[in-house]
């Protein structure tokens, strides 16, 4: 449960803010959840995003923003507790399960999430999506990495360079 905001006159009700995606879809979320974004935090602290106004996010489309907010809503209570010192093992396991499912997504969505997490400066999400990409790369050969990330196949010159590299530094891959 998000902590009630003081100063807005709503007794016990969490303060809501409106975020506007690049395709003009409006999302109303608790300020506590939106404040996971370092980019938005100051604006929200200054009282922005409430009432009829919204905070425009020209770099984030609605599909991505909804996904980002899904993450923020789930992680806001733990963040409000200053990390998760008070969280039970069940809570932590639940968050972990959520995170695992959250990044089980298509590459294009993952890419959009990386960009959004970067733009909005959401530390936990940045780390989560980066870990997912790292997991996609981990333990793969250079050619497999190319295919995973959709890089074009190497030209003969690049291939020769890679072979030479492997000859010289092959020990490092063992």
């Amino acid at each position: 449960m998000a902590a009630p905001e003081s100063g807005d006159g709503n007794n016990g009700a969490a303060r809501m803010v409106t975020l506007i995606s690049s395709d003009n879809t409006r999302f109303e979320v608790e300020a506590a959840a939106a404040s996971l974004s370092q980019t938005l935090q100051l604006t929200i602290l200054d009282g922005g995003g409430g009432g009829g106004d919204g905070i425009p996010l020209p770099n984030v489309d609605s599909a991505t923003l909804s996904k980002v907010l899904e993450y923020c809503i789930k992680h806001a209570p733990a963040a409000a507790n200053g990390g998760a010192p008070n969280a039970t093992a069940v809570d932590r396991a639940e968050l972990e399960r959520f995170d695992n499912e959250f990044v089980n997504i298509d590459q294009s969505v993952l890419y959009s999430l990386i960009m959004a997490a970067h733009n909005l400066e959401i530390e936990g999400l940045q780390s989560l999506v980066a870990k997912k990409v790292a997991d996609m790369i981990k333990g793969k050969s250079p050619m497999e990495i190319r295919r995973t990330l959709g890089f074009p196949d190497p030209t003969p010159e690049e291939q020769a360079e890679m072979n030479a590299h492997m000859l010289e530094y092959g020990w490092a891959y063992e």
Partner: peptide, 13 residues
């Protein structure tokens, strides 16, 4: 998030 061994492998690509 990548261990050293993977960083080396990833480098060329």
């Amino acid at each position: 998030h990548l261990p050293i061994s993977d960083l080396l492998a990833v480098g060329t690509v």
